[in-house]
Amino acid sequence: MSIYEILGTVLGIVGVWLMIRQNVWGWPVGIVQVALYAWVFYEARLYSDALLQLFFFAIQAYGWWHWLRGEKDEGGVTRTQPAALPVTQLRWRGVLGWIGAGAIATATWGELMRRTTDAALPHWDAFILVFSLIAQWLQARKRLECWAGWMIVNVVAIGVYWAKDLRLTAGLYLVFFGMAVAGHVAWRRSLATSLGH
């Protein structure tokens, strides 16, 4: 267990807590957290997870910008004070599309990592990479389904990180699983409120 893993763990919990509350400060906290975890995963030879942190960095920056920008008026003019982005849901076709694309990308990336690197658990690591990117993108777009994605990723990640002796990180992802459930409940309430239910 390194100081980077400890700091990344603490910032990860704070960042997800802020996301559950739909607080824009979750994005800059997340940026620092993923920078720390890029090093942790590189040292553990979980190369897909290390690469994932670089993608997370970019998506975190986008999410921060997107949430700060807010919604546009009906005429397409940006308001002087941005309105909070509402939580929305994908249609079933969108959900199935993301799952299908994720499965293909996981198989392709996992096989590439198996053949070309000394990656530990390349296919499981690829699953975490691909489906985390999908969940992070959906979160940046404020789609309710991001939390279901995070729940699934967290279950896989707990096993992978435990197997690689990253016990604190496995514990973090157990906490993340609980937080993903809480995030789903909170965002579902927000969606119901915005729809007037």
Rank of each mutant, 00 (worst) to 15 (best):
V175R: 04
R114L: 09
M151C: 15
A140E: 04
D49V: 03
M151A: 12
I152G: 08
L51E: 06
I31L: 15
I152A: 15
R115V: 01
F177D: 06
G26M: 02
Y37P: 07
S48T: 09
V175T: 03
S194E: 15
A61H: 00
P122L: 07
K72I: 05
W27E: 05
G102V: 06
G63Q: 10
Q139K: 09
W17I: 08
G97C: 11
V24Q: 04
R189Q: 15
E43N: 10
A58R: 08
W65D: 07
F56E: 06
C146Q: 10
R141E: 15
A135M: 14
A135V: 12
W92Q: 15
A107S: 03
N154R: 02
V130F: 09
D125Q: 11
S2K: 11
F56S: 02
Q53K: 11
T106N: 05
G100L: 14
T116P: 03
S194P: 04
R188L: 09
T106R: 04
E74I: 10
G76R: 01
I20W: 06
G102F: 10
I158S: 08
E111C: 05
A192I: 04
H197C: 05
Q139N: 14
L133N: 03
T169N: 11
T78F: 08
A140G: 15
V181M: 14
L46C: 12
A58Y: 11
W39Q: 08
V130M: 10
L54I: 09
I128G: 06
A126K: 04
C146N: 15
L18M: 01
W98Q: 03
A50L: 06
M179G: 01
G97W: 11
Y62F: 13
V87F: 06
D49N: 11
A163C: 01
G97T: 12
A35L: 13
A186P: 02
W147C: 07
L121R: 08
L90C: 02
L18Q: 00
H123F: 15
Q33L: 13
L54N: 04
P122F: 09
H123L: 12
V34N: 14
L18A: 00
W92C: 08
G100Q: 12
G26N: 04
L52A: 14
S48Y: 07
A83T: 00
V87I: 13
R143N: 03
L144S: 00
G159H: 08
I6Q: 00
S194T: 12
V153N: 09
R115T: 00
W17L: 08
A120I: 12
G30T: 04
Y4T: 13
M19E: 07
M113T: 04
